[in-house]
Design a protein around this nucleic acid. Structure first.
Lengths: 344, 344
DNA sequence: AGTTTTGATGTAATCGATTACATTACACAA
DNA sequence: TTGTGTAATGTAATCGATTACATCAAAACT
C-alpha cells in the first residue's frame, strides 16, 4: 500500500512483456487484443495484485463516477424529508449497479448555491441531485448555465426546463381530502409546509381541487403554514383549537401530524373519533403512533432509484425523461371509519 | 464548463504573466511569493473565474479529501442503526469543516470486505468508517494489512489494535436494568440483538452485571436473540407471552421494543402498568409511540462528529486516541413509575 | 512473389495540477 | 564595482492512467 510497493500499470506491462497501452486495453475490454495476450496480461494482473488508480483514470477520462448530494445544514431538514436514509440508500444502490458512488456533504443555506457550483466546476462529481427545491431555485439557473448534469427531486416552477423526479403530491393531497370529505367532513383544516417550497404549493393545489370538486368553498382561515416540523404542527394545532371548533385536519407531513395529535390529545380529543387527522409521507413513526396515522405514502425508495437512474443517464449522454411516481393513501386509525377502502 | 472554455492554471499564469508554479504557490498559500505577484495572480483568478481541478490536484498530492462509508445492502440495517440520518449528517458536517467529503455506497454482505479493500487500494477515499462490526471483523485485518486509515464505530474484540468511537453500551444496559430492578422487578427478560455483533455482547454484559450486583440469578431462559427489527421484537415477545408470565422486558433496541409493545398490547397488557418495557437507542419514534418509551439514549450525533474527527486526524498523521461517549437513560412512560430520576 | 488490407501492438502525448531543482533578481558587504 | 547570499520565480518532471497515431505482422488478394 505504501507508495513504494504500489503496483502500477507499468509494472503489469513489464511483467506481461507488453506495452502499457495493451494493458489498458485489456483492462477496459477493448476488443483489439489477442486472446493469448489478454490472458498473459490478466495473469500478470492477478499475480501482482494490481488494481487501477481511480484518480489517475478519472483525470484522463474526465469522469469521476460519482454523483453529488448536498443537503442543508439545518438539521430539521433531514427529518422533515421523510425516510432520508431510504432515499440515500436506494440512490446509492442504483448508482452502484451503474458503477457510481454518492458524494455526500452538508451546507448551510447561505453557501448552498456556491457549493453546488463548486462541486460542478471543480469536477468533484459528474452530476448533482438537487433536494429541497423552491420555485425559481437559483441552483437550477447556476447549473444550467454551467451545462452541468443535475436532477431535481420535486417539480418547482422554473423558467428553464430541467430533469426531475417527483411524487404525485397534488394527486395525493386531493385523494386525502376527498377521503375526508367522503367521511362526511366539510370543514377541513390544512396545515401546509413553508410557502416557498414547490411541494407545499402542489399539496395545496390538491387540497383545493378536492374541495372544488365537492363544491365546498375554500376558506383562507383554514389554511396554515408550518415548517414541516413536529413543533410547528403542535403549535399550529394549539392555535387552531384556540380559535375554532375542529373536526378534521389534513397535515402536509406526518411529522407535523404527530405534533398535531399531541396537541389534540392534550386538549382532550380522541383522534379518530372526535376528530379526523390525515398526514403525508408515511414515515416510520406513522404506523407506530397512537392512533396509527392515516396518511399519503410516498414511494421514497423509488424516488432514490429513479433519481440515480435519470441522472446517470443524463451524465452518460442518454436522453432521460422526467419521472412521476404515484402515491398511495394508507387508511389507518386516525380518521373516522378508517376501514373502508376508497378508490378514486 | 465545456472542455473548451475551461480555465486552467496555465491560463492564469499567462494572464498574470507568471509561471504556473507561482500560481500554484499563491493558491496553496506558499509564503515564497511577493505581495505584488500574489495580488496580480489573485486578480487574474478573479477575472477569469478560475477554480482548481480537484482530480488533477488529488493525483499529484495523493489525497482525495474524502472519507468512505460503506453500509450493508440489507435495508433493515439502516433502520436498526438508530438515527442513521443524524450520524451521517454530523459525520459530514465535521468532515466538511476539515475540507473532506463523504463517499457513500452500499454493499451486500458477501462483497463487503472486497469493497472495503477496493476503496482503499484504488484510493477512492483517504480513509474508511467501519460500521456494523462483529468480533474479529475481517475488515479490520484487511485494512490494517494495507496500512489504510480507518475508524471503527463500536468496539469489537480483535487481536489487532484499532481506532474506535463507541458509546457506553455496557454502562447503558446496566443502568437500564438497574432501573428496572429499582422499580421492584426481579424477573427481567432481555431481548438482545444478533449474537455475532459486539454491541449485543456488550449490552448483554451490562444486563448481566446489573443482575449480579443485585444478586439476582441470570436465567438463560430469559435471554433472547432478535434481529434488531420490529418484526423480530414482535415475534419474540409473542413467544415469551406464550410460555411465561411477564413483568419486565429490556429490549436492546427501540425498534424491537416497538414491535414488542405491539405484541403486548394485542395480548391485552397495558404497558407501563402491567408490564415495564425499556428500549435502547432513543430513535425518533421512541418518544412518539404509546406509551412513550423509556430508553437508553445514544449520543449519535457525537458519534458522527468524533468518527470524522478521529479518522481525519489519522489520515493527516496526527495521533488520535479512541473515544468513548456516554449514554443517558431517558425515563418515559413505558415503565412502572417512570417519574423518579435514577442516578447511578 | 509482390501489394494491399486488416488487425494487433507500441510510442508518446495528454489530462491539470504540484514541486524538486535550476535559475534569476535583488540586497548588502567588501 | 563586484561578489555573495537569499528570496522569488521559472523549467520541467511527475502523479497513473487512456488513447491518437505510428508501426508492424500476418492474411488476403492480384
Amino acid at each position: 500500500m505504501s507508495k513504494a510497493n504500489r503496483i502500477r500499470i507499468k509494472d503489469i506491462a513489464k511483467e506481461a512483456r507488453v506495452s502499457t497501452a495493451t494493458v489498458s486495453r485489456v483492462l477496459n475490454n477493448s476488443n483489439k487484443v489477442t486472446a493469448k495476450t489478454r490472458r498473459r496480461v490478466l495473469e500478470a494482473v492477478e499475480r501482482l495484485g494490481y488494481v487501477p488508480h481511480h484518480v489517475a483514470r478519472s483525470l484522463r477520462v474526465e469522469r469521476v463516477y460519482s454523483i453529488g448530494l448536498i443537503v442543508p445544514h439545518d438539521i430539521d431538514y433531514l427529518f422533515s424529508f421523510p425516510y432520508f436514509n431510504l432515499f440515500i440508500h436506494h440512490l446509492a444502490v442504483e448508482a452502484r449497479t451503474r458503477g457510481y458512488h454518492i458524494i455526500f456533504t452538508t451546507t448551510n443555506g447561505d453557501e448552498s448555491v456556491q457549493l453546488h457550483k463548486a462541486f460542478a466546476m471543480r469536477r468533484i462529481v459528474d452530476g448533482l441531485v438537487i433536494l429541497d427545491v423552491s420555485d425559481e431555485d437559483p441552483r437550477i439557473d447556476a447549473l444550467t448555465e454551467l451545462g452541468f448534469p443535475f436532477v431535481v427531486i420535486g417539480r418547482p416552477n422554473h423558467k428553464l426546463p430541467y430533469l426531475w423526479v417527483d411524487t404525485e403530491n397534488e394527486e395525493g393531497a386531493r385523494r386525502a381530502v376527498e377521503y375526508l370529505i367522503s367521511l362526511g367532513h366539510r370543514k377541513i383544516h390544512f396545515v401546509n409546509g413553508p410557502q416557498h417550497l414547490a411541494v407545499s404549493r402542489q399539496r395545496f393545489e390538491g387540497y383545493s381541487r378536492a374541495l372544488q370538486k365537492a363544491r365546498i368553498a375554500c376558506e383562507p382561515t383554514l389554511i396554515h403554514n408550518g415548517e414541516f416540523t413536529e413543533e410547528s404542527g403542535y403549535a399550529i394545532t394549539k392555535a387552531i383549537l384556540h380559535s375554532d371548533k375542529v373536526e378534521a385536519i389534513f397535515y402536509a407531513s406526518d411529522t407535523m401530524a404527530i405534533g398535531g395529535i399531541r396537541a389534540l390529545k392534550e386538549a382532550g380529543f380522541e383522534v379518530g373519533r372526535d376528530v379526523s387527522v390525515v398526514g403525508f409521507d408515511d414515515i416510520p413513526s406513522a404506523s407506530v403512533v397512537s392512533p396509527p396515522l392515516t396518511t399519503v405514502a410516498q414511494p421514497i425508495a423509488l424516488v432514490g432509484t429513479w433519481a440515480a437512474r435519470l441522472l446517470i443517464d443524463l451524465i452518460e449522454g442518454n436522453k432521460p425523461v422526467p419521472k412521476s411516481l404515484s402515491v398511495e393513501l394508507k387508511l389507518r386509525k386516525s380518521t373516522r371509519g378508517g376501514v373502508t377502502v376508497v378508490g378514486d
